[in-house]
Simulated scan of single mutants.
Amino acid sequence: MAIRYTFNTTQDQYTRESLIEYTINDLVALTKLYIYWFCNKFDFLDRNSMDTSTSTSITHHEHTALPLYFILSDSHGKNLQSTIKTPYYQIKTRSISGLQWVNTYDYTLCTQTVLNSPSISSILSSATGVLFLIGTNSVRSMPALRIIQQVEAIANMIRLNHHHIDHLEKITIAATFPCLKVSSRFPTIDLLLNNINLYNQQLEILSRRLGFSFLDFHITPEHLHRDHLHLQHQYKNILHTTIVQYFDTIIAKQVKSPQSQHRTSTAITRRNKRRYEKLKEKQQQHILTRSLSQSWTIPDIKNILKHHAIKFARICSVANHKIRIQFNNTKDQQHADNLISLTFFDDNNFAIWHEQK
């Protein structure tokens, strides 16, 4: 009789149960592993994304650090903020009352010594450029030509110690403001002003020879306080405005788009023509009219306007004892309107002007 294997014995059942249990356990293990991975993969991706974003942010910050400009000033800069920030650059200022280019009696008031101090030297090491608002205390105590020698030595010293500050707009020296506070060395206003004018003339010549920038704030004696040395309160904003405009211009040159550098001559001509037409239209909206005596000539008019630091676009007409002066903007027109009285160009003022010359 044939033997039939039904696999229903106790041993067979135990074997099948063991295999089923092993399979189930193996499937559960795989399922748990999948659930663990699924639940954690997004956390991993988020953390990885965050790390990448942070790294990118840090790298971007390192590559987009704002240019730093440093201003060293005598007491004329005491009202400037210690740090001036704009979207494109930042400025650090240091004002020291009594500061001179060279002071052999007090080294704390000597520019040469101040620049070599650890704190200032550290700033210069990371600065894109430096602006000097210094000179008034020097021109009141020594001849202009001697001061120019000191300025030349200091400019050369900066370039020797800080090789990155070597291009035209890396070093800027401002013209010295008018000063009516006489000194023992220059006991009259005429002697003092002559020394200041000679210094500014020679400083501009030196800037071309050494290759640094010369900045004129166009300050006149009318801007001075009763102490005959500092600016009146209402004119102190001239410094901040002029400085920011100056550095804005420098930055604009540096970030000039490549497209504009490759314009054709025809495109440039067309663009310049449009600009000229817009400027001409703007100037026609800013006209100042004054009575004019026959004594005044066009050169005389231009010279006295320049003497009073009046920025005008052009003298558009002189007829019927009237003069019409055009300006580029409202600010220049208002400045002129405040300085040019209704009798500014009469015979009496003409005589006074020529006596002063």
Rank of each mutant, 00 (worst) to 15 (best):
V130R: 04
S213P: 10
N116R: 11
V182D: 04
H225L: 00
H233V: 14
H163N: 03
I154W: 11
L131G: 12
T242I: 02
V114I: 15
L210N: 06
S183P: 13
L160H: 10
A174T: 05
N200M: 05
T172W: 08
R159Q: 14
N195H: 09
F247V: 05
L145A: 08
D166R: 14
F217G: 10
H225D: 13
H167E: 06
H225A: 06
F212S: 05
I196A: 02
F212Q: 02
N156S: 13
F214N: 04
H225N: 12
P118Q: 12
G135S: 08
I165R: 11
H164M: 13
P178Q: 09
S122M: 06
H240M: 13
H218I: 07
N156M: 14
G129Q: 11
H164K: 15
H225M: 00
Q150R: 05
Y199A: 00
E169H: 15
I171D: 04
T249F: 06
T176P: 03
I123C: 03
I134D: 00
R146V: 00
L231N: 08
L229E: 11
K181P: 02
H228L: 15
I171P: 08
N197A: 13
T188P: 07
A144W: 12
G211N: 04
I196P: 00
G211Y: 06
Y235N: 15
S122H: 09
D227T: 00
N156L: 14
I243H: 03
V114H: 06
